[in-house]
Design a binder for these strands. Structure first.
Length: 259
DNA sequence: ATGACGTGAGTATCACGA
């Protein structure tokens, strides 16, 4: 079972890229972020023509997440549903072949100390509370998407440049660590690839991609039963090339059959 | 130089991304 995640940065601008990627890579599941469209604007017919179905949580202009799957998606939930007033479409969950899959788009945080930064830290703790309420560490859970946090020095192309900057501050790293600990989750791409220079996002500006000036902020955090099944994980740099790409590359993990 | 590149909203230019 191949589970991919991709911050597509507007599905309307990159629908054809997504469809081409689905056809070439044939993931079982593709989690999408930053759709930047309403549910009605999502290219559902194109996805279905490609042999997939999709569950979408969109909104106008910003955010928006989806789960695209070859297999049935059941028990779909949208948002955190924790009683906090929050109109950002940043989380959708569904069960596919016995695995609970979350497609998430964590808040960016803007400037350190800003309201957006506080919202980001709170959003992480709200998500951790949801996971603790819904799951046991023995469940099969995959939390994938754009976490907007680089967890370690190895995940940043220039550590001194990013020190204290949004996506790499200690409170953000601690929030991600708390989230992972809420369900004993593993950052499974990093487990497969301990080598440096592996990033999932590159700035459009200043030749970020050709210089490999990137960050690894798109992850799969998985429970132990899923981690035990992982036999491959890759970042598809090819999808970051060419005319008008997303600034993120797709990341996928391959699981062996459940025993 | 607080820039660069890209998208959406809206039709000039700003908000936002990371």
């Amino acid at each position: 079972m191949k589970i991919a995640t991709w911050n597509i940065n507007s599905i309307r601008a990159r629908g054809e890229r997504m469809l081409a990627w689905l056809k070439e890579h044939q993931p079982d599941v593709l989690c999408l972020q930053e759709l930047k469209c309403t549910d009605e604007q999502f290219p559902m017919l194109d996805v279905q023509a490609a042999g997939y179905r999709a569950e979408v949580f969109g909104q106008k202009t910003y955010n928006g997440v989806a789960i695209v799957s070859k297999h049935a998606i059941t028990d779909v939930t949208r948002g955190l549903n924790d009683g906090v007033e929050d109109d950002h479409a940043r989380l959708i969950a569904g069960t596919v072949q016995g695995i609970r899959i979350y497609s998430l788009y964590a808040p960016n945080g803007q400037e350190v100390g800003s309201p957006a930064y506080q919202y980001k830290l709170q959003w992480y703790d709200r998500l951790g509370a949801l996971l603790k309420a819904k799951h046991q560490p023995t469940d099969s859970v995959v939390l994938c998407g754009d976490f907007n946090v680089a967890p370690q020095d190895i995940d940043v192309w220039n550590v001194p440049l990013f020190a204290g900057q949004t996506l790499f501050t200690e409170p953000e790293k601690a929030a991600l660590k708390r989230l992972a600990e809420s369900l004993a989750l593993t950052d499974v791409y990093r487990k497969v690839h301990p080598e440096p220079g592996k990033y999932s996002w590159w700035d459009y500006r200043m030749l970020g991609f050709p210089k490999n000036h990137g960050l690894r902020i798109d992850h799969h955090w998985v429970t132990a039963s899923v981690a035990a099944r992982v036999n491959a994980a890759e970042i598809d740099r090819e999808a970051r090339k060419g005319k008008l790409p997303s600034d993120h590359a797709p990341v996928w993990v391959q699981l062996s059959e459940a025993t």
